[in-house]
């Protein structure tokens, strides 16, 4: 479904991604794990077109994404829920969801809205509220709901559990699994390696811009190096 081959990304003079290649197949949950600054978010930003790779190729459902503008990439069903939620703080919950469906036709928007509200009843209760006044967990739900409004074929989630209380983290991961069961393919970036790998079909470990290890979620969870580096021994 998504195939990334040998991408190299720079921030000015600093190279953040060094020859990363990986794949996501239809129906999988693929986890990218790694420490702060390993290049996980940079990878997602490159896939969604906010950053550009100087080399290699990115192919999503037979479409070349290397030179496609970010706003077109969304239309093809590759949807990025960014780190730190990045919801529109001064707009209402429903306006945020409307923006998520910016690329969708009018009649699908109503269906999507109903589906998102069914998935996140909390958002329906607060639909007229200004998004900036929501709690952290609600904001994460809004960010994910907004992503779902675009009818994603592949949903990329960047640190969905960041800054949330443990009970909310579990809730978010339950939602991710539910979305997966409903047929959405997921590319998950997480610092919470334990949680991410336990639901992942496959995973990749990123270290200072390189893929150093790959395997199924269970393999990586049992791997000694991964346990030492990311799972606290």
């Amino acid at each position: 479904m998504l195939s990334v081959y040998n991408i190299n990304v720079w921030y000015g003079a600093i190279q953040a991604i060094k020859g990363v290649s990986f794949e996501v197949n239809d129906g999988e949950i693929v986890a990218l794990i790694g420490a702060n600054g390993a290049g996980k978010s940079t990878t997602l930003k490159t896939l969604s077109g906010l950053l550009r790779s100087r080399t290699g190729s990115i192919t999503f459902m037979d479409q070349d994404l290397m030179h496609m503008p970010a706003e077109k990439i969304v239309e093809h069903g590759l949807v990025h829920v960014p780190e730190g939620r990045r919801i529109f703080q001064q707009m209402t919950v429903e306006e945020n969801l409307d923006m998520g469906a910016y690329t969708q036709a009018k009649d699908t928007i109503a269906d999507n809205l109903e589906r998102v509200y069914a998935q996140f009843p909390r958002l329906k209760e607060r639909r007229r509220q200004i998004a900036g006044t929501l709690s952290g967990g609600e904001q994460q739900m809004l960010a994910m709901g907004r992503g779902l409004m675009a009818n994603p074929k592949l949903l990329m989630l960047d640190e969905p559990s960041m800054g949330l209380a443990p009970i909310l983290v579990e809730q978010i991961f339950e939602i991710i699994e539910a979305l997966h069961k409903a047929g959405t393919t997921i590319l998950l970036v997480e610092q919470n390696a334990q949680m991410a790998l336990s639901i992942a079909t496959r995973g990749y470990v990123l270290e200072t811009g390189r893929v150093t290890l790959t395997g199924t979620g269970q393999e990586l969870l049992r791997n000694d190096d991964v346990r030492k580096a990311y799972l606290g021994g």
């Binding site: 906010l50 706003e71 239309e75 990025h80 529109f88 703080q89 001064q90 306006e95 923006m99 675009a150």
Partner: peptide, 22 residues
């Protein structure tokens, strides 16, 4: 829709792009 897109861009240009707003 265009007016809301305008507000979205004012608030967060990158996030607006991720919504598919040009």
């Amino acid at each position: 829709k265009m007016g809301k897109a305008m507000r979205a861009c004012s608030e967060d240009r990158d996030a607006a792009q991720l919504m598919g707003i040009n």
